[in-house]
Structure formats: C-alpha cells, structure tokens
C-alpha cells in the first residue's frame, strides 16, 4: 500500500495517540498506512525515539510519511527520529505543525485520495491555521 502517504501519530499519551488513530480508521478507513506511539510504559506520559522510529517503519510509504505530534518532546523526538533515518527515507518524512487529532484526520483524508506528501502536509497544517489562537505546540510543553 505504498501508493498512499502514511500517517504517524505521536502523543505523550498512548490513549490520545490510539484514540486519534481510531478516529482516522473509523472516519477515513484502512487505505492509509497508519501507526501510533505514545507513553513510556506503566502509564507514564512521554515519547520514545525508538517507538517513533518503529511507528515510522510501520506506516512507511514510498510516497512519504507525515508525523503528527502533540507537545514539545513529541516534536523534538520525532525530529530526532527522522534525522536518524537513512537519507533516502529522511527526505520523505515530515512533522506537521498541526493539532494532532484534527490534523491526523484531515491528513488521512487527503492521503487516502492519493495526494502527494506536500499536499497531505499542507492539509494537516490548514487545520493548525484554524486553531492558531490555541497553543497546540509550545516550547514550554510537557517533556518526558
């Protein structure tokens, strides 16, 4: 299923990540490669580089992967995970500046129609533009 851009959901909370993934699956369907990760085990909030890397692998598509993140550490760890990818994969993975739930659903809707990575990213970030008065991502965000 590599003709469709993949979506990765990274949240500090596994419940948030899984819930957002559920919304994508129920609202958009199974066409989009989708993976999520969140939490550092035993109910503790946080994100782990290795989990993000594994999620990118699970949602991998040759068309690219958009990573949806919630706060601070999710974003920096996702960027580090992308940095660690082989160069030919690295340029196909982007972090969206968008609210994680709305962005994931919108991005998946766009991806399912066969859109290119840049279009999927732009659609996700359009959700962010509508929510800009809400601080969806700040450097003061909770880190693990």
């Amino acid at each position: 299923m590599t003709d469709v851009v993949g979506i990765v959901i990274v949240s500090h909370s596994p419940l948030v990540a899984e819930g957002a993934a559920d919304m994508v699956r129920q609202m958009v369907g199974d066409r989009v490669p989708l993976a999520w990760c969140g939490g550092v085990g035993e109910g503790v909030l946080g994100t782990r580089l290795s989990d993000i890397r594994a999620a990118i692998d699970r949602a991998w598509s040759e068309r690219g992967v958009v990573v949806m993140v919630d706060l601070g550490g999710a974003e920096t760890n996702s960027e580090m995970a992308i940095e660690a990818l082989p160069p030919e994969r690295r340029r196909k993975v982007v972090v969206a500046n968008a609210p994680v739930v709305e962005g994931a659903v919108l991005a998946a809707t766009e991806a399912a129609s066969g859109a290119a990575l840049a279009t999927v990213l732009a659609t996700a970030e359009e959700a962010g533009a509508r929510c800009r008065s809400v601080p969806s991502k700040t450097s003061a965000g909770r880190r693990q």
Partner: peptide, 14 residues
C-alpha cells in the same frame, strides 16, 4: 458533522 463530512470529501476527491 465530521464523519459524514469526511465521507463526502473523500467521494468528491475521487
């Protein structure tokens, strides 16, 4: 609401 809107846009995009 959200779910039918997604269905509609996905159909439109086809």
């Amino acid at each position: 609401h959200a779910r039918p809107a997604v269905k509609l846009t996905m159909l439109a995009k086809s």
